[in-house]
Design a protein around this nucleic acid. Structure first.
Length: 546
RNA sequence: GCUCUCGUAGCUCAAAUGGAUAGAGCAACAGACUUCUAAUCUGUAGGUUAUAGGUUCGAGUCCUAUCGAGAGCGCCA
């Protein structure tokens, strides 16, 4: 990457390598007010014979950039750095092209995973937000990205719905998505309580696996109704997918896959079912005893489908952490079955609860549709300002739903507190939008100066903002290496907060000195570029005014 | 029963993969608006990082035990 932060890191890491050190240098923002940055991980080598030459070389590299005042070394071996902001501001741009990586990869993002027949509900929010953000982050740094919604359009849930329709003699042609969404829980209930229903549903499931023509017709109309409803929801929530492949799309690959695995003794009989021959605990069940397929069966076939039809270097599955055993078994099996040696990773996330810490439910105890949460959020925003344009309200609502979700580390369970997340202050989607709108207004209302960036006049607050803008590369790297968007979400709050301080500290419209004004406007532009790039990475659309 | 994850300020969460004095936001309290939109900003207070040991120059982070919470454990997805 070509930005100042990562270029410096690369130089320093090369120096580490020269000394055969198998770790990366850590260049951090300083906690001490008199310094801007610090390097801590030289300390551990302070008893080694190469320490003084390593330290000397590191200091020389930093000094040679001219972005820092002469480095101060502490007696134990910590290095303390102070920016030379006048030089820094001349070279920092934070454009997209500054962050593009050299070794590009093709990455499939498997997320969303809605089931047909069920509405999108609150439980889908995290996979959608995290998935879209990671997709955008990897796109931003130049990777070749592909999203696949991995539609749950196969298996027992569908069989249950069809069984229910059959029992009640429902006319498929008159069915709409609302009715379908009411039917699913009823069908699921019947499956649990009625033995006859259960037997028929399992029969239908098997027939579907075997491509029964009549049933496939019914299945297809259910799928179309559902898909239309999903598309409407995604349009509202600003989601889109490159592929809408479903579990059904790989159905035809399964018989051959099973046969081949069986022939090669990779899977074996176990009381009628087929299990992996790999010695694992628990055993990995590949097909049921009636020969029908499971979650892992279609997931395995999906791997074959993707390697043959899409091609990839990596696949990231953005799925909640309760399914970690499934993915461990899936990834084990990919290797054991010798499908490929590509990188597959479960990007797990914690449970989303309501503000009391309980699972999200509607008042009558059902799962809460995402559209209902959208409505509620929208109402909060209308209460803050009733004069907003319709499109602005929509974008602010999405900002709240996205930013609130991404601010927390994806691995932890968290409480979704709408009242808190729609606050105009604090770490909220509204706050970060407001800062960005303020910057836009300045850009529009104050005539741009010629880019005079010699002899700048920078206050402490200007310097703080500039220092933080320098760190974009660091937080971006954290986010894509760990596939954790919250680093960028917190960073967006931090730069927005610094910008608001900058804004309050001195009125640009009252500055008469042109060089002074020029440096201020330069920072406004730099903030706006950075903020909008971070927003893109998070999947948030900047609003024009609010 | 077995396996995994977690326990940080009143509340919600961070903490660079072992670094210096554990940071933010909310809530509380005290301030700043004839405004480039105060949808903001400034300040105060709040901690034995569940507990007890251990590893080392150095631990919220690694190891062990205890207590507490959550999740998963073949014919659902």
């Amino acid at each position: 990457m070509n930005n100042l932060f990562n270029k410096l890191i690369n130089l320093l890491n090369n120096e580490f390598k020269k000394f055969d050190l198998d770790e990366a240098i850590k260049l951090n923002l300083s906690k001490m007010p008199e310094f801007d940055m610090q390097i801590n991980n030289l300390v551990k080598y302070n008893k080694s014979d190469f320490f003084s030459s390593l330290q000397k070389n590191i200091i020389e590299i930093i000094d040679s950039t001219n972005y820092f005042l002469p480095v101060e070394k502490n007696e134990i071996g910590f290095l303390n750095l102070v920016f030379n902001h006048d030089n820094l501001i001349k070279d920092i741009t934070n454009k997209k092209s500054d962050f593009e990586i050299n070794n590009r990869e093709k990455i499939i993002f498997d997320y969303g995973g809605p089931n047909i027949g069920k509405p999108l509900h609150v439980g889908h929010m995290r996979t959608l937000n995290i998935g879209r953000s990671l997709y955008n982050i990897h796109s931003f740094i130049g990777n070749n990205v592909v999203s696949d919604i991995h539609l749950g359009d196969w298996g027992m849930p569908i069989a249950q719905i069809i069984t229910y329709l059959e029992n009640q003699s429902v006319d498929i042609n008159a069915l709409d998505s609302d009715q379908l969404e009411i039917i699913y829980p009823k069908a699921s209930e019947q499956y649990k309580i009625s033995e006859n229903f259960k037997i028929r549903a399992q029969e239908i499931n098997k027939l579907l696996n075997d491509n029964d023509a009549e049933l496939l017709k019914i299945w297809e109309s259910i799928k179309n109704i559902s898909k239309k409803s999903l598309e409407e929801n995604f349009s509202l929530l600003n989601h889109s997918f490159d592929y809408w492949l479903g579990e059904s799309d790989v159905n035809e690959l399964i018989p051959e896959m099973i046969e081949s695995l069986y022939k090669n003794k990779k899977i074996i009989d176990d009381s009628g079912a087929l299990i992996s021959a790999e010695d694992t605990d628990p055993k990995i069940l590949i097909t049921k005893s009636d020969g029908s397929y499971l979650y892992i069966t279609t997931d395995l076939a999906t791997i074959l489908y993707r390697q043959n039809n899409i091609g990839y270097d990596k696949t990231l599955y953005i799925v909640d952490n309760r399914q970690s055993l499934h993915f461990q078994q899936l990834f084990d099996s990919i290797k054991f079955f010798e499908f490929n040696n590509l990188h597959h990773e479960h990007i797990s996330y914690g449970t989303l609860n309501d503000s009391d810490g309980n699972p999200f439910k509607t008042r009558d105890g059902g799962t809460k549709p995402l559209s209902e949460l959208f409505e509620e959020t929208q109402n909060y925003i209308k209460n803050i300002n009733s004069d907003l344009e319709k499109s602005t309200i929509k974008q602010l609502t999405n900002s709240v739903l996205t930013f609130s979700d991404l601010i927390t580390n994806r691995k932890t369970d968290y409480k979704f507190d709408l009242e808190k997340f729609t606050n105009v202050n604090g770490k909220t989607g509204i706050y970060v939008q407001y800062a960005q709108v303020r910057a836009k207004k300045l850009q529009q209302s104050i005539p741009q100066q010629k880019n005079e960036i010699e002899n700048l006049v920078l206050s402490d607050i200007d310097k703080q903002l500039l220092s933080q803008l320098f760190m974009f590369g660091y937080f971006l790297e954290q986010s894509f290496l760990l596939n954790e968007p919250h680093h960028l979400a917190n960073y967006l709050y931090d730069i927005s907060n610094s910008f608001n301080q900058f804004y309050e500290h001195e009125k640009l419209s009252e500055i008469e000195n042109s060089i002074h004004l020029s440096s201020k406007l330069y920072l406004v532009n730099l903030f706006l570029t950075t903020s909008q790039n971070v927003m893109f990475c998070l999947g948030i659309k900047p609003v024009e005014k609010m």
